[in-house]
Amino acid sequence: MKSVIVSWQFWALLSAAFAALTAIFAKVGVENVNSDFATFIRTVVIVLVLGGILIGTQQWQALDSVSGRTYAFLLLSGLATGASWLCYFRALKLGDAARVAPIDKLSVVLVAIFGVLFLGERLSGLNWAGIALIAAGAVLVAYKA
């Protein structure tokens, strides 16, 4: 049996927990500040912490050890992340965290669709049923009755 700490499930659950805390902390954090400025502060914190982790764990890589293709896709990913964060913080500024977060998590549905369309991944009927339930659940949680 492999150690829990090296399983993707462990890290995915931690990611979900931290994402939930992100929504709660960000909702309070954007109350009295522009949402774009709040995103900037968050980004600076992330850069500093991650830089410290890379240096502290000696994981820093020489910049020329990364291929141009990798740089291109990481640049695109960074732009998408930035756009996502800006939109997310704007949505939190305007709406309830309990409704914004589920709509944001429709990204799970979109990742499944994009994975199939662009990466050639395959999902079973049961997987698609789960994706449909995630989509329906997000809409139901976000619905304001």
Rank of each mutant, 00 (worst) to 15 (best):
M1H: 07
K2R: 12
K2Q: 08
K2H: 07
V4P: 01
W8V: 10
W11C: 03
W11K: 08
A12C: 03
A12K: 03
L13K: 06
S15N: 15
A16P: 02
A16C: 05
A16E: 03
A17K: 00
F18K: 04
F18A: 12
F18E: 01
A19E: 09
T22Q: 14
T22S: 09
T22P: 00
A23W: 05
F25A: 15
A26F: 05
A26P: 01
A26W: 01
A26I: 00
K27G: 03
K27W: 08
V28I: 10
V28R: 13
G29E: 07
G29P: 06
E31H: 12
N32E: 12
N32P: 00
N34S: 13
N34P: 05
S35C: 02
D36K: 11
F37S: 10
F37D: 09
A38V: 04
F40L: 15
F40A: 14
R42L: 07
T43P: 00
T43R: 00
V45K: 07
I46P: 00
V47D: 00
V47Q: 01
L48F: 13
L50T: 08
G51D: 00
G51M: 02
G51T: 10
G52A: 06
L54Y: 14
L54P: 06
I55N: 07
Q58V: 02
Q59L: 12
Q59A: 14
Q59Y: 05
Q61V: 13
Q61N: 12
L63Y: 13
L63N: 07
D64W: 11
S67R: 05
G68C: 03
R69W: 11
A72R: 13
F73E: 00
L75G: 11
L75Y: 04
L75S: 12
L76A: 15
L76F: 15
S77M: 09
G78P: 06
G78A: 06
G78S: 04
G78T: 03
L79C: 12
G82V: 04
G82E: 04
G82N: 09
A83L: 15
S84F: 15
S84T: 14
W85K: 06
W85Y: 13
F89T: 02
R90H: 13
R90Y: 11
A91F: 08
L92C: 02
K93P: 01
L94I: 07
D96V: 03
A97M: 05
A98C: 06
R99N: 01
V100K: 07
I103H: 02
D104W: 08
D104V: 10
K105F: 09
K105G: 02
L106D: 09
L106I: 11
L110N: 06
V111F: 14
V111Y: 13
V111L: 14
A112P: 06
F114R: 04
F114M: 14
G115F: 07
F118E: 01
F118Y: 11
F118H: 02
G120L: 08
E121H: 10
R122P: 00
R122C: 01
R122I: 12
L123D: 05
S124I: 06
L126A: 15
L126S: 14
G130F: 10
I131S: 01
A132I: 13
A132T: 10
I134D: 01
I134T: 11
I134V: 15
A135D: 08
A136R: 09
A136M: 14
A136Y: 10
V141T: 13
V141C: 11
V141K: 08
V141M: 15
A142G: 04
Y143A: 11
Y143S: 11
Y143N: 08
K144S: 14
A145E: 14
A145G: 15
A145S: 14
